[in-house]
């Protein structure tokens, strides 16, 4: 008949894309530009600079602090919701990223060309985990504009990693970035990189 066999098994689902980058690079602004809700904040408990209490059984003697994460929601279809999680880029937050990145479609590394160093840590992380990511250069007004090629060189990006510019305040621009990372994730899944094929 004229219904696809998959439609019967199709289930309501939710998925996520991670937005990483240094302090003040525009993560929350980007999430807020496309989210249907005002970005919400959730917290995870941290025992020290590198470990999460949630990852340990009981470490009651260690002092705890919290790490905050902002996120937004996009309802893409009646049976599909996409969440965007904005997360700090510093290495000491990596414990949280394992949790965050598990099951993610991919990641956007948001870059401010005045503070390129802040992006090295998320780039290293996503590369080591094999999570598909793109680099999006947030074009702050008055920032000296470098070509995307110059930025890619400065970051030593592998040639297959897409790099785009984005205006984190602009819905259409952010939507484009989300489409790009999702397309790229699909490409990677259909045609995996032959990493060290020996």
């Amino acid at each position: 008949m004229d219904y696809a066999p998959t439609s019967a098994t199709r289930r309501a689902a939710s998925t996520k894309i991670v937005v990483a980058g240094g302090f003040g690079v525009g993560k929350t602004t980007l999430v807020g530009s496309v989210s249907e809700i005002v970005p919400l904040r959730t917290e995870a408990l941290v025992t020290n600079e590198s470990e999460g209490v949630d990852d340990l059984d009981a470490v009651p003697t260690k002092a705890t602090t919290t790490v905050a994460m902002d996120f937004g929601r996009l309802t893409l279809a009646e049976d599909l919701v996409l969440y965007l999680f904005g997360t700090p880029g510093q290495r000491r937050f990596w414990f949280m990223w394992d949790d965050l990145c598990l099951g993610a479609i991919g990641a956007i590394v948001l870059v401010d060309t005045n503070r390129l160093d802040d992006s090295f840590s998320p780039l290293d992380y996503f590369e080591s985990k094999g999570l598909p990511f793109i680099v999006a250069v947030n074009e702050f007004d008055g920032t000296q504009r470098y070509s995307l090629e110059e930025v890619a060189n400065a970051l030593a990006l592998p040639p297959h990693v897409p790099i785009i510019s984005v205006d984190a305040r602009d819905r259409a621009s952010v939507k484009q970035a989300l489409v790009r990372v999702t397309e790229y994730a699909l490409e990677r899944l259909i045609q995996p990189l032959s990493v060290n094929a020996n």
Partner: peptide
Amino acid sequence: LIERTLRGL
């Protein structure tokens, strides 16, 4: 799931 996400986006 990724294709559905892409269509939705």
